[in-house]
């Protein structure tokens, strides 16, 4: 069953490389939240009600609802519609993304990690690498925020892959920290837009001596 979720998640990574509309990025982030919930639910053993609530909060409530709503508000406020400035042509990006996914699966089968869910580990690894690639090829800071969220989702998959179940209180603290972090990064995107009249990263180069 988790194959379906993992393959769909891999497909969302390819779609991230394909799309240019901001609206679709937000939809994909939201959709990834749902997929993460599915993967976590199937794979985390000995799960109790409180832990289930935490995962539900982390994936569905935060990743699929709160953050996408916040991002949507941000795009409306800054009138962002389409991301034009990509360093690498879309066609190449799709090929690269496919390589990341394939490479991650090959790497984890090559390493033969003991007692690890290698499928989830692989897709988590691919997400983190793709997130970094996504940040590197985009020139605007809104896309960088999306890249950061993809990395965060990758890390969530890692934690499911290695079977880690944090104590509830710590899990909540981490969740709160990450959420506040994303919200503050979002607020700073707005500040940059207000002050520089643009969210192009090229504008942010006045500090060099």
């Amino acid at each position: 069953m988790d194959y379906i979720f993992i393959l769909t998640l891999a497909a969302t990574l390819v779609l991230f490389a394909l799309f240019e509309r901001v609206k679709k990025f937000i939809f994909l982030i939201s959709f990834q939240g749902v997929l993460l919930f599915g993967i976590a639910l199937i794979n985390l053993l000995h799960i109790n009600t409180l832990e289930l609530v935490l995962i539900l909060l982390e994936t569905i409530v935060v990743k699929s609802i709160i953050i996408p709503i916040f991002l949507r508000k941000m795009t409306i406020q800054n009138q962002l519609k389409r991301v034009h400035e990509v360093n690498v042509p879309v066609f190449y990006s799709i090929i690269f993304t496919s390589f990341f996914i394939l490479g991650s699966f090959l790497l984890s089968s090559f390493l033969q990690l003991p007692n690890i869910n290698s499928r989830i580990f692989s897709i988590g690894f691919a997400s983190v690498i793709f997130g970094i690639y996504f940040i590197a090829i985009h020139k605007n800071i809104f896309s960088h925020l999306i890249g950061y969220l993809i990395i965060e989702n990758g890390i969530f998959l890692f934690s499911v892959g290695v079977g880690s179940q944090m104590p509830l209180l710590i899990g909540l603290a981490i969740l709160l920290d990450v959420l506040i972090g994303v919200l503050i990064i979002g607020i700073f995107v707005n500040k940059v837009k207000d002050r520089f009249q643009s969210i192009d990263i090229a504008q942010l180069s006045q500090l060099k001596d």
Binding site: F188, K191, V192, L207
Partner: peptide
């Protein structure tokens, strides 16, 4: 703003 964005 630039410095805080980069740091963050």
């Amino acid at each position: 703003i630039e410095a805080s964005w980069k740091y963050l």
